[in-house]
């Protein structure tokens, strides 16, 4: 059984980003970059399925310029067997990413495609679902537990009121939530070994797909700043302020 794991390079989760001076985009120059935390959880889950003997091969794929190979090597150090980079400088909407991944799946025929539930830069939460629609696969989004039994995926999902469990035939799309697992750290020997794992590079043209322009970002602005608050010295003062100044209780 084969698992395909799309991974994204994003600004590290702990970095507070700023909008650039001319309000056209978020300034990402010289910021620390990392593998998107949800993608890391997806890689970890794929590797655990391999360690459990359910899966024989884990393939990571990333779409972006050459620098995304850093995050792909990280994924390989965590246990992925090989990588595919689709080289492009364009910022693509999730639908375009899903179309590219569909053509990768056409050649890979993976049984499980494990996405992160969202990337922490775009916060879209779309690509996995769109890929599932384009490939007509069943989907289990926001997974907090994954079991492969009798050729089926049994997945517990985090939904608004609690948890929901679904079962679906393979091939299937699963998107990971935070609680699915705790990703491991890459060990130094594994980081060295990862450098020799196969990494194939292809272009969008190689895949023979045409992408549309769906939207234009007109501007990017910082969020409205909150007015500075005050420190109160006692519970009494807090209650007094909430009752008489803020009038919220």
């Amino acid at each position: 059984m084969k698992v395909l794991v799309p991974v994204k390079r994003v600004v590290d989760a702990n970095v507070k980003v700023r909008v650039n001076a001319d309000n056209t985009k978020v300034d990402t120059a010289n910021l620390k970059m990392a593998i998107n935390p949800f993608c890391e959880i997806a890689v970890e889950e794929a590797v655990r399925l391999k360690e459990a003997g359910v899966v024989s091969e884990v393939v990571v794929v990333s779409i972006g310029p050459k620098v995304v190979q850093e995050q792909m090597r990280t994924a390989m150090a965590l246990g992925a067997d090989r990588g595919i980079q689709v080289d492009t400088d364009k910022e693509l909407v999730p639908l375009s990413l899903a179309k590219i991944l569909k053509s990768i799946q056409a050649q890979e025929n993976a049984d499980i495609v494990l996405f992160g539930k969202q990337s922490i830069d775009g916060d879209n939460n779309q690509t996995g679902q769109m890929f599932a629609a384009l490939t007509d696969m069943p989907q289990a989004t926001f997974a907090s537990e994954v079991k492969i039994e009798d050729g089926k995926a049994v997945v517990t999902r985090e939904v608004d009121g609690g948890l929901q469990t679904l079962a679906m035939p393979l091939p299937a799309v699963i998107t990971t939530d935070l609680r699915l697992n705790e990703p491991r750290y890459a060990k130094l020997p594994d980081i060295m070994k990862a450098k020799r794992k196969p990494l194939e590079v292809m272009s969008i043209d190689d895949l023979g797909i045409e992408l549309k322009e769906h939207q234009t970002v007109l501007k990017v602005t910082p969020p409205a700043a909150r007015e500075a608050g005050i420190m109160v010295s006692s519970v009494d003062e807090l209650v007094e302020k909430l009752q008489n100044e803020a009038k919220v209780i």
């Binding site: 679902q129 629609a133 926001f142 939207q215």
Partner: peptide, 23 residues
């Protein structure tokens, strides 16, 4: 943008071949 909306709507958008705008 509930867990149901986020689950269903991107599938609709992809089937219509349009991008989705989230949240």
């Amino acid at each position: 943008a509930s867990t149901t909306g986020k689950d269903v709507l991107p599938r609709v958008a992809a089937l219509l071949d349009v991008a989705q705008i989230s949240e």
